[in-house]
Measured scan of single mutants.
Amino acid sequence: DETGKFLVLALYDYQEKSPREVTMKKGDILTLLNSTNKDWWKVEVNGRQGFVPAAYVKFL
């Protein structure tokens, strides 16, 4: 149950560059965990948590 969690859509592919980031593919649906930083949002994708560039995702 994803109640209270926001979902975001990956607009572009992103390859993680550090262990704190996660890789996503364009079209992936991600669970948004934290968006307090304007540049990097914490998400969960494929069972992994990490950061992606905020400009690469949008709210569903």
Rank of each mutant, 00 (worst) to 15 (best):
E16S: 15
A10D: 00
V52I: 09
W40K: 02
L32K: 01
Q15D: 14
A10R: 01
S35K: 12
W40T: 02
T31D: 05
K17F: 05
G4M: 12
E44P: 00
E16F: 05
L60K: 06
W40N: 02
D1G: 14
I29K: 06
I29T: 07
K42H: 11
N46F: 07
N34C: 11
E2V: 14
L7E: 07
V22Q: 03
K38T: 09
M24S: 00
K38R: 11
Q49R: 12
Y56N: 05
K58I: 15
K17A: 12
V43Q: 00
D28H: 04
P53V: 02
E16K: 15
K25S: 10
L9A: 06
G50N: 01
K25L: 08
G50R: 01
K26G: 05
E2R: 08
K5R: 14
Y12I: 10
G27N: 07
D1Q: 14
M24W: 02
Y12A: 11
T36F: 10
L7D: 04
W41N: 01
G4A: 13
L60E: 07
M24N: 00
L11I: 11
R48G: 04
T31A: 09
T31E: 09
V52T: 01
D39P: 03
V52A: 03
Y56E: 02
D28W: 10
D13F: 04
E2T: 14
P53S: 02
V43T: 01
G27Y: 05
E44N: 05
E21K: 04
E44T: 07
K5L: 12
N37S: 09
L60M: 11
V8A: 10
T23K: 04
N34H: 07
A55M: 11
P19K: 09
V22P: 01
A10V: 08
K58Q: 14
A10F: 02
R20T: 12
T3V: 13
Y56P: 00
D28P: 00
Q15F: 14
T23G: 09
R20G: 15
D39W: 15
L7I: 10
P53I: 03
V57D: 00
K26E: 08
D13N: 08
L30M: 15
K26P: 03
K26N: 04
E21I: 03
A54Q: 05
W41F: 10
P53T: 02
L7C: 09
Y56G: 07
F6I: 14
T36D: 15
K17Y: 04
L11N: 04
K25Q: 10
G27F: 04
D28Y: 04
Q49F: 08
K42R: 12
W40F: 07
L30R: 00
E2Y: 05
K58R: 14
Q15H: 14
G4D: 09
A54R: 11
V45N: 11
V57E: 00
M24G: 00
W40Y: 07
L60H: 08
V52Y: 01
S18Y: 07
G27E: 02
D39T: 14
L11S: 04
L32T: 02
P19C: 08
T31K: 13
W40Q: 03
E16M: 13
T3S: 14
V52D: 00
G27T: 02
I29R: 07
L33R: 04
V8Y: 09
M24E: 00
A55N: 13
W41G: 00
V57R: 00
T23Q: 04
L11F: 04
K58F: 10
M24D: 00
A54D: 00
D39F: 15
W40G: 01
E44W: 06
I29D: 01
D28Q: 13
D13Q: 03
G50L: 03
N46W: 06
W40L: 03
P19D: 13
T3G: 12
L32G: 02
F51I: 07
G27H: 05
A54M: 05
A55Y: 09
T23R: 05
N37K: 06
V57M: 06
L33I: 15
V57K: 00
E44Q: 10
E16T: 08
G4S: 13
L33Y: 04
E16D: 04
V45S: 12
V57P: 00
P19V: 09
G4I: 14
K42L: 15
E44K: 07
G50E: 01
A54F: 03
W41M: 05
V52C: 03
K17G: 09
Q15G: 07
E21A: 05
S18F: 06
L33C: 06
V8G: 09
T23F: 04
V8C: 11
E16V: 06
L9M: 14
D28E: 10
N46V: 05
Q49P: 06
N37E: 11
L60A: 08
S35G: 10
E2K: 13
V22E: 00
Q15R: 10
K17M: 12
F6K: 13
Y14M: 01
V52L: 02
V57Q: 00
L11M: 11
T31N: 09
L9Y: 14
K38H: 11
K17D: 06
L7K: 11
D39G: 09
D28V: 04
N34V: 07
L60S: 06
V45W: 07
V52K: 00
L9N: 02
V43E: 00
K42N: 06
E44R: 08
D13A: 06
N37A: 09
Y14V: 01
Q49G: 06
L33W: 05
K5F: 12
F6Q: 15
N37M: 08
G47Y: 05
V45T: 12
T23P: 07
V22C: 08
A55W: 07
F59Y: 12
A54I: 03
D13E: 06
T31F: 13
P53N: 02
T23D: 04
G50I: 03
D28A: 07
E16L: 07
Q15S: 11
T23L: 02
E44Y: 07
V43F: 01
E44M: 10
T23S: 15
S35R: 11
N34I: 07
P53G: 01
P53Q: 02
E2M: 13
K58L: 12
G50Y: 02
L9W: 07
R20S: 14
K5E: 10
V22A: 05
V57W: 01
G50H: 01
K42A: 08
K17S: 12
L60Q: 07
K42T: 07
G27I: 01
T31S: 09
S18A: 09
N46H: 11
K38Y: 08
A55S: 14
E21H: 07
K26Y: 04
E16G: 15
G4R: 13
E21N: 05
K5V: 11
D13Y: 04
K42P: 01
L60R: 04
D28G: 03
D39V: 14
N34Q: 09
A54H: 04
Y56K: 07
V43M: 02
M24A: 02
G50P: 00
G47I: 02
I29S: 04
I29V: 12
L7Q: 12
Q49S: 12
R48N: 06
N37F: 08
N46I: 04
L11W: 05
L7R: 11
N46S: 09
D39N: 13
G47V: 02
K5T: 12
L7G: 03
R20W: 15
K58H: 10
V22R: 02
S35N: 14
K42W: 15
D1F: 10
D1I: 14
G47R: 05
T36N: 13
V57I: 10
F51Y: 15
Q15E: 15
F6P: 12
T31V: 15
Q15P: 06
G4E: 13
V8N: 01
M24K: 00
E2A: 14
V22T: 06
K58V: 15
F6G: 11
R48I: 08
V45I: 15
K38G: 10
E2G: 14
E2W: 04
D39M: 12
G50V: 03
Q15N: 13
D39L: 15
D1P: 14
V57H: 00
K26F: 05
W40C: 06
K58W: 09
Y12M: 12
Q49Y: 08
L30K: 00
W41H: 03
K38A: 12
K17H: 08
K58A: 14
L30T: 01
L32E: 00
Q49K: 10
A55G: 12
A55I: 10
V52S: 01
Y56T: 07
F59R: 11
Y14W: 12
G27Q: 02
F51T: 03
V8P: 01
L33T: 04
F6W: 14
V43P: 00
A55C: 12
S18L: 08
A10I: 02
R48W: 03
L11G: 04
K38Q: 11
E16P: 15
K58C: 14
R48E: 05
V8Q: 01
